[in-house]
Design a binder for these strands. Sequence first.
DNA 1: CATGAATGAGTATTCATTCAT
DNA 2: CATGAATGAATACTCATTCAT
Lengths: 203, 203, 203, 203
Amino acid sequence: MGKIDIKKKVKENALFQNAFDLFTNKGFAKTTISDIVERAGLAKGTFYLYFKDKYDLRDKLIVHKAAQLFTEAHQEILDQSVEGFENQILCMTDYIIDRFKKEHNLLQFIAKNLSWGVFKNVFGNSNEKESVPFYRYYLHSMEQYQITCEKPEIMLFTIIELIGSTCYNCIILEQPVTMDEYLPYLHKSILKIVEVFTEDNMT
Amino acid sequence: MGKIDIKKKVKENALFQNAFDLFTNKGFAKTTISDIVERAGLAKGTFYLYFKDKYDLRDKLIVHKAAQLFTEAHQEILDQSVEGFENQILCMTDYIIDRFKKEHNLLQFIAKNLSWGVFKNVFGNSNEKESVPFYRYYLHSMEQYQITCEKPEIMLFTIIELIGSTCYNCIILEQPVTMDEYLPYLHKSILKIVEVFTEDNMT
Amino acid sequence: MGKIDIKKKVKENALFQNAFDLFTNKGFAKTTISDIVERAGLAKGTFYLYFKDKYDLRDKLIVHKAAQLFTEAHQEILDQSVEGFENQILCMTDYIIDRFKKEHNLLQFIAKNLSWGVFKNVFGNSNEKESVPFYRYYLHSMEQYQITCEKPEIMLFTIIELIGSTCYNCIILEQPVTMDEYLPYLHKSILKIVEVFTEDNMT
Amino acid sequence: MGKIDIKKKVKENALFQNAFDLFTNKGFAKTTISDIVERAGLAKGTFYLYFKDKYDLRDKLIVHKAAQLFTEAHQEILDQSVEGFENQILCMTDYIIDRFKKEHNLLQFIAKNLSWGVFKNVFGNSNEKESVPFYRYYLHSMEQYQITCEKPEIMLFTIIELIGSTCYNCIILEQPVTMDEYLPYLHKSILKIVEVFTEDNMT
DNA sequence: CATGAATGAGTATTCATTCAT
DNA sequence: CATGAATGAATACTCATTCAT
């Protein structure tokens, strides 16, 4: 990567980071491009060299942040040497919840914007540096622990949607209960969902 | 209700309905108050006699639409004379999914905006005409069928969040699969969640 | 016309007049909508209640100004009691040239923008107050003086185009000669053109 | 001309040609320097090595295109071995009209921009390669056919202005008639104008 | 010579809100 | 009660020009 390319990457990151801060603090609608470039220390026109408009920046930012989160969740499983498929799923759950508890901003941003379509992008997008081996690892882990699951994608989808939507309510709104109170039920629900998809007698 | 009150109600409904159409077709951000009043056949100033601003209208609209939906789901259970608690839950699920399949607009609007906080409003809000006996019926049904559940609210919360978020993906985006394909898994997952909250051996 | 309609007309005229001054002094491209409303003493948004954009204003202004000019040329013929068809044509020519000599602004504006399509609008546009009986008078005059002309419209077109384009060069640019020097040749050329279209032996 | 000079000429021509295409398709005002260099396959900065700005390019382009046109009209007269002064004038007229009929772009561009001032440049500008012997030939031809004309320049001016402005209306706008219909009248008018300037009894 | 990333002044346009009628 | 003309702050986006490479 040449000197110029490095400079460009630095600027793109400055735009990403400052946009994220503003989106999560002021809200997307109230954040202006002027705000973003001002905080990033760049000229207005420079913004348009990197992104088409505010929406383009947001879409790319969602993928960027979601990829980061899952990469780190995956790393956590490795760091903790968690054994067993269900334990790994719960470890991922807990890691994500923990991050969300610490970073409401991140939760707010991801929860409102992350759809399964975007999610798949996160794993498939090969020219993203942060491209995650998470999904591959997830499939590999089932194999390793000899778990039979005909629809692994649908199972993961169900689990992640449940985590995402309940997190938003319990952590941000503390409705109907706090996440601390909800967590045991969430764990049990997730394990039951795993059962649904891995029982032998699927019709 | 006097003549004048009826006229006012008519105008309010015109604003509600046209705002809903516009929000769901053009998106909330791109819908202007001018758009709404123009379609409703009213003058700009009139808008402010009914709502504080666009956000005020939206918030009231969410409650309005959600209350309608659950009232109708409840009615469906009664019309079909569905027996058994689980069957009633599944009937509600199917009714909601059916409506969402027919009215993507409604799904989009509710899914993006309905939080548990709003949801509770739907039941508690006494000055809403459509205020629903749904939640009361839900509790009553558990009693009738002698279901022991320590946290009925949390159970309903879990089920509804799962329905809401998966509907959005499967129906609107058809990701990762269509709702027709997903439905059996959703049913099983919901039944398992009911198990989680009604088993005797809750720790 | 109600009070409000009068107020609206006043504002429209303020926009017209100030836009004309600015277009002719700074040029169309360099005149901004801000300039126009500022000079007219109106708010920016008000502009858009009257015109779609700068181009819309310009197009309407051309018709407005051209109609004015021909109405006045026609009036001049009446005031001077000019007799004879050719004399009336020359009187019109001289009046227009005279106005252009005094108001380079007007010449510049009209010459660059007046096409025959617009010109016909000037006569036909019935909801313009200034709508001119000029063309009707022109036909009537030929009849009165028993002039036979198969293509009166094409004759007028030829004359007016010649006047317009030579005026621009001789008056504004003084190229290749000044209008004072050119005028006798222009008169002769016009008379010859009248001959072309009114000779008996047209093929 | 050295290798480098040839390369430069190639680039200049690329800028000329692409600018012409853009000016005539999108209009001058809406054409940006970025557009031009992009189509020409050059870098933005390169533009400024050849032209001061967009206006500079346009002015040079007008001369360039007008010179080309008159050179070709002149060549046509030679190729066809047209005899007689009036016939040569009409041949030039027909050639120009024909080109304009085939290339509306060219007509639009020349008609809106060509003033007599520019026109004279076309003949006088010695560092233009295409510089035309047209005007010299025009004078020479009158001499050859023993035509007495005190103001040859004014005569040519009158003719060319009439051609230019009527072409624009009849060819582009087809107003008030098409050029096919107008042409006989134009020919007659031009011949009459020649009469005006060549009659013995000029006052 | 040629490049193209970066700049930032400049402008059009929108739209919530008010208030005289 | 209802209207809709007027407002003007707020913002997105463009593009000519420069200059380090």
